[in-house]
Each structure stands twice: as structure tokens, then as C-alpha cells.
Design a binder for these strands. Structure first.
Lengths: 227, 227
DNA sequence: GTCCCGCCTTGATCGAAGTCCAGCCGGGAT
DNA sequence: ATCCCGGCTGGACTTCGATCAAGGCGGGAC
């Protein structure tokens, strides 16, 4: 694994403030594996063999409901990990994972982590922190979905993408709009209409390119201060 | 703390398969504290002093959105714990906690758990399991909210309350309908109408008493097999 | 090049749930 | 007992988003 990849790994909660040597030791000689778009990492109910950490690209987690429709539960990008708890506990995955774009994902051997864990309980704290963060994100998502109108949810998504940028922002959608719509809990049609409505707040969309005149305006929309 | 209370504690994920002596040791000499309905355990953003475990009654976790409305994130009953990760990490709570009914809650000192954790890494696994379960519940809730019609969500709630009972079931709502409605992500009015619609599937409601002719029928409704 | 297929957009319609409102009922206080 | 008050129910109306349906556009296969 090269230095650039390792830098991404270190952005993850689990490894962020971990001792460099220990971090390398845990990763071992594993290298990220490349997945084609649409390729399945594991299915819902599968026993997960290790912790997954996205190095590049995006991976979607989804659950199949009885009637065949699947709902997107989360989408993870570079530096984000998933399936930690399931892997460590040897429990079946409660969601399936599939590459949403071309992606490279590092799989870290659960057994190896477990071994290091008994040696250094601090690792356990990090894993808890990681799980806790997932929980927080989930809760926020839930809160958003509970009542916010589509336009606000979309504005929120764009704001998240923009990070802490100021003023005019140019960015591009990381994956298909259909998928974004699913993640935001709406149909592609509603997503499209919502984006159209955001035009009056200085948002321009052309294919996957998005230009935002003033990100602050959008933040206001996301907060609900602006219609 | 008496034996009955301790039995409830042991139903919790964290303590379920833990060695009896160790479990008692972790709890220490703490006793459950009684809270009146509406009393606040901690506020969103507070530093949490310990793990909370509900012994009796119900505690709601809620988040205040900017516009003053709060959304109910989760409601925990006997044997369920919350705030584990926050307490252990010393992070601020991402939700506030308030007694939804009269409730008794055991607060377990985080420092004490942390100390035991270095001694027995197995505890870390249990905490992860606990966090992971919370996550799963959250994910399922999210999935439900994403698309299911009100009636199905209500049916699902009743089924959950009924546990694995069969045939005719009598039960009562654990807390106000308004609160249940909030948890299910709908208004009290919608909840009321939804319950009314369930009458045609053999559900009778009188104040907080609910009588279900055949729980299996309700399971079918929750699954979507029945309109 | 042309054709086709997915993805996206837009329009029209419909239904489910939210809002606003009025009335009911039961419990607690006086 | 009577009066409130809070929680619940149900009606009327409205609004948001899903569904159905019809194109547009671009990219890949040939």
C-alpha cells in the first residue's frame, strides 16, 4: 500500500490518533482491493470477514425489504469504514455492501484487530468512537427524514458536500442522482424537482457539475430560515 | 439494589453473558434513581457522567432542531441502556434524555467501566455489541420511516410490543400516544386515524388498553401482505 | 456515422399525511 | 359536585411527494 493510500486510512476515526507503528501493524500487508461499479462486497446476512475501509470511490450499504425494493441505508466515501462491529463480533451483516462507483476498499483482518485489542485497550475506545459516530450520523439522518421537506434535505446534502467552504462553490455529484435521491429518502423525480427549486437560491446544475453562488444561502435553506 | 432490579440489569446486552461477580463489580454499590415523568436526565450537549440503564419505566431520547421542535430519536425501556459510548469517551450527548413515564434508571460510573475494561477486554466486545445493536435498531427505524405508510408503521409497533405472543393479545400502550406518534415519525392525528383503520384488522383500542384478535393478522399488515 | 439504452428531467394526476379546528372524555384541583 | 386542562378523536382542507407517462440527452456498441 502506498503512502497516499495510507494517508487516507489515517483519516479514519479508528486510526486517526493511533500510533503510526501500531496503525501499520494492524493494517498489516493488506492492500486495497479494486471493485468495479456495481460489484458486491458482501450481502445482507453474510458473515463479514473484516473491517472495511474505503480508500477511494463510494460504497453503498443497502437493505432489501421483503417486497424486493431496497433502501439505501448509508453511503461511505474515502476514509470511512463500515462493518467494524459485525466483523469483530462475527455477526451477520445487517446490510449489504456494493460499490456505488469504481472503488478501492481495504479489508482489515478482524482477527488481527482482535489480537491487538487485548494488547491495547485503547483500540477498543477508538472502535467505540467509530461506532458512536456512525450512530450519530444515523440519528441525524433519521431526524432529517422525519419531517424535513425535500428541498431542505437536498440543500443539506449539498452543504455537506461543500464542507466548510465559503462563498461561491463548484462541486460535482459523487455518484448518480438516482442513488443520492435514494439516500435522501425520495424518488429521483422529487430530487430533480428539488434541485430545480434550488435554482432560485443560486444553485446551477449541469449534468454532474454543481455551481453554488453563495454556500451561505444554501446553509440558510438547509436550516429552514429561507423558503 | 435488590435482586429483581439486578435481574433487569442482566437482561442488558452489556451484562447478559458477563460473569456474575464481574457484573456486580461494575455496577458497584449504585442504586437506580427514580425520576418523575418529564424529569430530565441530561440535555443534548451535556457531558454524560455515566452509562444509563433503564430498570423500570421509559426514557425518551430527543433532539432539538433549530426551530425549537424536538424529534424523538428513541425510547428505551427496562433492560435497555443508552449513552454508553458518549459516557465512555467523555463526548457530549448527541441527544437529550427525559423520563417519558415514571422511571428508575441506574447510572453506572464510566470511570469504573473504563478501569475494568483494561483488565478484561471482553467488556469492550460487549459494548461494541451493544452499540452495534443500537445501530441496527436505528437502521431499521430509518428503513421504516423511509417509505412505509403510517398504518404499517403502527402495525409494526404493535407487533413489537406484543413480542412473540400468538393469537389474541391484550396489551397497553407504555406511554402517551402523542409520544408514540412522535417516535413513529407522524402526528398524533395520523396515529389516531391509523389505529382507527386497524380496527378492520381486529384491533380494538380503549384508552391505553389494546386488544388484538389475531396478532398474526397484524404481522401480515406490518409486512405489507395485507392492505 | 446510427441506434439504443440509461439516466435524467418535466408535466399531469392522485393519494397519503400534515395542519387547523372543534368537540369529547377523564382526572385532578378546588 | 363543578370546572379546567391535557390528551385524544375525527372532520375539512391543503400540500407535498409518489406514480404514471412522455420526451431529451449523452455515451457506448456496432
Amino acid at each position: 500500500m502506498d503512502a497516499a493510500d495510507f494517508a487516507v486510512v489515517r483519516r479514519n476515526m479508528l486510526f486517526r490518533d493511533l500510533d503510526e507503528a501500531l496503525a501499520r501493524d494492524i493494517v498489516g500487508d493488506r492492500s486495497p482491493r479494486a471493485y468495479a461499479k456495481g460489484q458486491v462486497l458482501f450481502l445482507q446476512g453474510d458473515r463479514v470477514d473484516g473491517l472495511h475501509l474505503v480508500v477511494s470511490g463510494w460504497v453503498k450499504l443497502y437493505r432489501a425489504t421483503e417486497d424486493g425494493v431496497d433502501t439505501v441505508v448509508a453511503i461511505h466515501g474515502p476514509g470511512q469504514s463500515f462493518g467494524e462491529a459485525a466483523a469483530l463480533l462475527g455477526a451477520p451483516a445487517h446490510a449489504g455492501a456494493e460499490a456505488a462507483t469504481e472503488a478501492r476498499v481495504l479489508t482489515i483482518d478482524a482477527e488481527r484487530v482482535r489480537a491487538r485489542l487485548t494488547a491495547d485497550p485503547d483500540i477498543a475506545f477508538r472502535m467505540l468512537a467509530s461506532a458512536s459516530m456512525h450512530l450519530r450520523v444515523m440519528v441525524e439522518e433519521l431526524e432529517r427524514l422525519k419531517s424535513l421537506p425535500a428541498t431542505r434535505r437536498i440543500a443539506g446534502f449539498l452543504v455537506e458536500l461543500a464542507g466548510d467552504a465559503r462563498g461561491a462553490v463548484e462541486l460535482e455529484f459523487p455518484y448518480e442522482k438516482t442513488l443520492i435521491a435514494g439516500r435522501l429518502g425520495m424518488t429521483p423525480e422529487s430530487f430533480s424537482r428539488g434541485l430545480a427549486k434550488l435554482r432560485e437560491h443560486g444553485v446551477g446544475v449541469e449534468r454532474e457539475r454543481v455551481s453554488i453562488d453563495r454556500i451561505e444561502t444554501l446553509r440558510a435553506v438547509a436550516r429552514g430560515d429561507l423558503a
